[in-house]
């Protein structure tokens, strides 16, 4: 079955070292199984999409990787070692950031906090520090608004600043929780192109969660598909197939490919529980 075999799928890069290994992780909260025996690995410089609908367990999985949620079973290894509480090797960009326009903070200040935000004491102004911040702002194409108040920036601009904040500590792995959810199409594409560049150039592994995979198809090396707490991992061609997803969802699923895009629909055998469904037409359960 995919979810056990997927962890051992051969890779296209020969030289990848495993940055992240999620090993048979299960989480249940409040008596409900959120994650069920999830396993996959992410190699250096790989762009991995974590795909699943709302409630599939994406955020919980990211929290487990960040060490904010204790897995009931299984373990998470970072570069082959168990994670420590404070680590700079994982960067994180949360799902929704609500920055107050009244907060007296510039984009530059937030990026600076990415360098040493967890340390105590006041930061001393230094030329190296400033240079690092400038360099990072440039890398995410955020120089234009480097000195603007962060709460006044648009959603896409704030996202860039947060990515810079995460990257400045030179992590080996960058986690992004639904970065595309609140962006318009163009900003979303720009962010994806930016992330792809970072992954390739700095060999930083990227694990990005989304409920829609089409925007990621051009850049994604691998996909981790979550449904009902279970996961299938591998390349897009290995995972996004009718038989694999049927096993994952527990009922028949068709995968349609149209103009290079992928659409996942419930198959004809799908029996709707909902009596109000007019004539048993296949309801689309998930479009990816």
């Amino acid at each position: 079955m995919p979810r056990t075999s997927a962890a051992r799928t051969p890779r296209d890069h020969a030289d990848t070292a495993e940055v992240l290994e999620v090993d048979h992780v299960s989480v249940s909260l409040g008596g409900r199984q959120i994650l069920d025996n999830v396993s996959f690995t992410v190699g250096a410089g790989e762009f991995t999409g974590l795909i699943g609908s709302n409630g599939a367990g994406k955020t919980t999985l990211l929290r487990v990787i960040l060490g904010l949620q204790h897995p009931g079973a299984g373990r998470v290894l970072l570069s082959g070692r168990a994670r420590r509480r404070r680590t700079a090797s994982v960067g994180y960009v949360p799902q929704k950031v609500l920055l107050d326009p009244d907060t007296p903070m510039r984009a530059r200040d937030l990026v600076g906090l990415g360098l040493d935000g967890q340390r105590f004491g006041m930061p001393l102004p230094s030329a190296t520090r400033r240079a690092k911040v400038d360099e990072m702002l440039k890398a995410v194409d955020a120089e234009r608004f480097a000195d603007a108040r962060i709460g006044n920036l648009s959603g896409g601009e704030q996202q860039r600043v947060l990515i810079a904040h995460a990257l400045i500590a030179r992590p080996r792995l960058l986690l992004l929780d639904e970065p595309l959810a609140n962006l318009d199409l163009r900003s979303g594409q720009e962010i994806i192109a930016l992330l792809h560049g970072i992954a390739v150039e700095h060999r930083i592994a990227i694990l990005l969660s989304a409920h829609e995979m089409n925007a990621l198809l051009p850049v994604m090396n691998r996909v981790v598909y979550l449904a009902g707490g279970r996961a299938a991992a591998g390349t897009t061609d290995e995972v996004v197939r009718s038989d694999v997803l049927t096993g994952l969802y527990g009922h028949h699923v068709d995968v349609l490919r149209v103009h290079g895009r992928v659409i996942v629909v419930a198959g004809p055998q799908f029996e709707s529980d909902d009596a109000s469904e007019p004539d048993g037409h296949d309801p689309i359960i998930h479009v990816s």
Binding site: G30, I34, A56, T59, K96, G155
Partner: peptide, 26 residues
């Protein structure tokens, strides 16, 4: 208890929104 992802997001969003801004766009 934090039951689902959506619920979790709601709970955490609640803590955030009580102190931070709520952007009107998106």
């Amino acid at each position: 208890m934090v039951v689902t992802e959506a619920e979790e997001a709601r709970l955490r969003g609640q803590r955030v929104s009580s102190r931070a801004a709520v952007r009107s766009d998106g």
